[in-house]
């Protein structure tokens, strides 16, 4: 009787133990691949050391496989990488090697930590993904790229969790210390604050998405930069 109860209780979780990292990633890709395009409103919140900038809002556009653009009026500091680039990497399991690096709880959700290393030429050198075991979505991503260094993305999901579309994305970016010669800035009487460390600091940018419209027609011109 005890044995039967034991199996009844653990049987539903057995598949989690059995899943290979590739299978975990494939499940997530399957969810996201239902999205051919989307547009949404986005509020952007900045917390950048040495940059004072007001929060702003705009529109986000995505078109499969890898076009992403935020359109807004005025000056904005945005992450260099397309935050959905990781799906371009994991869609074909022959293009990467993956390793399971244990598990960690983020909020209430248990996550499997999967490291992904591309096989061929790719801007991404390595991606470390915290894949939710119940949502099958990446709750945290640490992406190391050749061009842009290390970027940490923390995702919060809501209504569109089945499509792996986050309600909130929080980017943590390494920043170089901003310094301009006093003469160039004509900032003659300012005494810069002395800071310890190597002049590097971390800044965060938060995207809060709202009013997603999925699989809608989006012109390619939306993704082009103005004047180019």
């Amino acid at each position: 009787m005890k044995k039967a109860l034991f199996f009844l209780f653990f049987l539903p979780f057995a598949h989690l133990q059995a899943q290979t990292p590739n299978q975990i990633l494939y499940k997530s890709w399957q969810q996201f691949s239902r999205i051919k395009s989307f547009k949404s409103e986005v509020n952007i919140y900045f917390n950048l050391p040495s940059v004072s900038i007001e929060d702003m809002s705009g529109k986000a556009f995505y078109k499969a496989p890898s076009k992403f653009r935020i359109r807004l009026k005025g000056i904005a500091f945005l992450p260099k990488d397309n935050p959905f680039n990781v799906y371009t990497l994991i869609r074909d399991s022959t293009q990467y090697a993956s390793v399971l690096n244990g598990s960690e709880k983020i909020g209430n959700e248990l996550c499997k930590i999967v490291s992904v290393i591309p096989n061929g030429e790719s801007d991404i050198v390595m991606a470390k993904l915290w894949m939710g075991t119940t949502t099958n979505c990446p709750l945290k991503m640490q992406i190391t790229s050749r061009e842009n260094g290390v970027i940490l993305i923390e995702n919060t999901y809501g209504r569109f969790v089945k499509n792996a579309l986050p309600d909130k994305m929080r980017f943590t970016v390494d920043m170089n210390k901003f310094k301009v010669p006093k003469a160039l800035a004509a900032d003659i009487n300012n005494t810069p604050k002395k800071s310890a460390g190597d002049g590097k600091s971390k800044g965060t940018i938060e995207f809060v998405f709202a009013n997603y419209t999925l699989n809608t027609v989006i012109e390619d011109s939306v993704f082009k930069e103005e004047g180019k």
């Binding site: 904005a76 945005l78 260099k80 920043m175 210390k177 901003f178």
Partner: peptide, 15 residues
């Protein structure tokens, strides 16, 4: 030139 250190970390739109 003045904002090049920030350009390394961010995509700066509308500047």
């Amino acid at each position: 030139f003045l904002i090049q250190s920030l350009n390394q970390s961010f995509e700066i739109e509308g500047m």
